Structures are given as structure tokens and as C-alpha cells.
Simulated assay, not measured.
Amino acid sequence: MDFINGITFGFMNRCGEWDTAESYESLRLLKSRTGANTVILAVVAEQDTPWSTTIHYQDDWNLTDDEVIKMIRYAQSLDLQVILKPMVNVSDGTWRAHINFFDHAAPVEPTWEAWFTSYNAYILHYADIAEQTNIEMLVIGCELVNSDRRENEWRELVAQVREHYKGLITYNCDKFQEDAVTWWDAVDVISSSGYYSVKIWEKELDRIEQVIKKFDKPFFFCEVGCASRSGSEFLPNDWRFDGETNLASQTNFYQTMFAACDKRAWVGGFGLWDWKAHLYPIEIAANDNDYAIYGKPAEEIVSLWFTNNSNSTSLKEVRYDK
């Protein structure tokens, strides 16, 4: 597939919120205003607590399969590459990285086996949709840091996904975890969340480069972005950081990140975080201190970057026969 000039769309939306004129128009604006060639569609399921073993992905509040498929088809009609990203949140607010169970099962305690049984059903459900719609890539997990050590379970899931979906498969590890995942050889593309301080981009790219060389796989940042708050360029991963609105902080982050990555030919693209399905009025963009780039100076930087890097290719086309 082409170099990924992408943006994540529709995170945290619920049933009925994608199948609206407002959401379709938002996706159209995503492409026309930024020049993106890829959209990452974020579908969210939830589990009740970090130690729950049931993942709710077909409840009344979840996005319906029909509206997910319709949004994929609309993105394709806009000539956008589509990456489908099923994600897990924890209903009590705990970050998904802290989902965890005993490595050695104990009576009456929840287990990794039970969790993966539920999780695999969730991912395979969207693998079928990915195959049906012939999208470019499926993300089989995002920032599930404590599960990363469960190598056998992840390898088994990849094998199962390949029975359902013939396109590219990636796993989106968390920041600083690129060299902790031991099973990168099982997927087609390595990806991570690049929420790195503007002070350390060069150092972290040096570290990630060694992982890419070791596994000889394409790489892109499946998530990367920064809130428009004072100080967020130094702590871009902290979505709860309570800085005052500062558009320059977000701009500084994007300028630094793009400049650092531009020196590395192995960086195959970006899934910027993020673009809302329901946009705030552009007249109040300067008052928004979240990660969105719509109507902010960072959007202009993104548009310029995407436009100047629209013809490069780096991710191999890989399709598997059933």
C-alpha cells in the first residue's frame, strides 16, 4: 500500500453516530483539508474492569456492522486507503495497557485464556468485515502492554486472523514498547504509538530503527499526536494533562516529529490522532485544547506534509490466500 498519510477517525463513537450526514461530511473534510490518503477507522469495544474477561462488542451501544461497513465504503469512494482498528477500552476508565491476569492460572481467578477467547472473537468479527470490504490493513490490537508478553496467544490470534482476512496485519504497540514485543515476525507491519516528547524524538527513532532492522518489516506510527495544551509537546501521551489551551504546543510537536521522521526512510507513515466524526464549529477551533487538529495551525502543517509526501511508497503489498 502507499505511504500512510493517515488520520484516525471516529474514536469513541457509539451506535448510530457514524451513519449521519455530519459524520460523512467530517470524513470528506478530513481528506479535502489535509490531503490524507488513508483513514484509520477506530471501532471501540469495552470490558468492565482491567480483570474482566468479557469484551462487549455487540451491545446496543456499539457501532453496528452496517454503519461500519457504510463508513468504509464511503471512505473508499473518496479514494482513501482504509485501516480498520478495533480497540478495547475499560469501562471504569483504566487505560487498556493495564488489562492483566496471572501468568499461571489460579482457582477462581480470571485467566488470560478466558480473556483471549473473548478478545479473539471480537477481532475475528472485524477481520470478516475487513475481508468483506477489501480494506488495506487490520490492526489486531492497540497498546495492550501487559498482554504483549503472551507471545503464544498473539501468534495463535494472527494465525486465526489469516484464515479470515487476506490483507495486511499489524499490532499497534505502545510507546517505548517497540523493542519489547518478541513476535513481530508474525505480523506484516510493525506499528506503534509515537507519543514521544519533542526532546527525545531522535533518540527514540534510533532505538526503533534497531527493531526494524532485526525483524525486516515495514513500520509506521499507527498513532501519533499531541494535545493543544501548554506543555503537551513534552508529555504528548498524557490525555489527562491539564495545561491551558496552547495551539503552539501542538504545532511544535508536529514540526519536530515530521522533521525527525523525514530523516528515516524506514518510517512508512502516520496515523495522526485524531479527527472527530462530529466536528466542533471551526470558529471555536482556537479554544479546543484536545488532540484534534481541525481548524488549528497544526492542520496546516499536516496538510503541507501530506501534500509533499503523497507519492512515496514504502509498505509492501501483501495478500494471503485462504
Rank of each mutant, 00 (worst) to 15 (best):
E204N: 10
F219H: 07
K213R: 14
V198G: 03
P218L: 08
Y196T: 02
V189K: 10
Y196P: 01
S192N: 14
D206V: 13
V224Y: 00
F215H: 15
F215T: 08
S197G: 03
V198H: 01
I200G: 00
V189I: 14
I208Y: 07
D188V: 06
A227N: 07
R229E: 08
V211C: 13
E209K: 13
G194I: 06
K214Q: 15
F234L: 14
Y196S: 02
W201F: 15
S197M: 03
E209A: 15
K213M: 10
S232M: 13
R207F: 12
K217Q: 07
V224A: 14
A227R: 12
D206Y: 12
S193I: 05
D206K: 12
L205S: 08
I208Q: 04
D206S: 10
P218V: 06
Y196R: 03
D206C: 10
I200V: 14
W201P: 00
F219K: 04
S192I: 09
Q210R: 15
L205D: 05
L205E: 08
I190D: 07
V224K: 01
S191W: 05
V189Q: 10
E223T: 06
C226L: 05
E223P: 03
R207E: 14
S192V: 09
F219I: 03
W201N: 02
V187M: 10
G231A: 03
C226D: 04
E223N: 06
C222H: 11
Y195I: 03
S191I: 06
P218R: 05
F234M: 10
R207K: 13
F234Q: 06
L205H: 07
S191D: 09
K214P: 05
S191K: 07
V187E: 11
L205I: 09
W201H: 12
E233Q: 11
V198L: 04
G225Y: 03
I208C: 08
I208V: 15
G194R: 04
K214M: 13
R229H: 01
E233H: 12
I208W: 05
S192F: 09
I212G: 07
V198W: 02
E209W: 08
S228E: 02
I208S: 03
S191L: 07
V211Q: 10
S192C: 15
R207C: 09
G194M: 05
E223S: 04
K214Y: 14
G225M: 00
Y195L: 03
V187L: 11
R229V: 02
S191H: 04
Q210A: 15
K213H: 13
K213W: 10
P218N: 07
V198I: 15
S197Q: 00
K199W: 00
V198F: 04
V187D: 12
V211F: 13
E233W: 04
I208F: 05
G231K: 06
W201T: 08
I212Y: 09
V189Y: 11
C226I: 02
F220L: 10
I190R: 02
Y196L: 06
S232C: 12
I190F: 04
G225W: 01
F219G: 05
E223Y: 04
R207A: 13
E209S: 15
D216V: 04
D188C: 08
S192W: 11
L235P: 00
F220K: 10
L235K: 11
F221P: 05
V187G: 10
E233I: 01
S193F: 01
K203T: 13
I212A: 12
E209G: 14
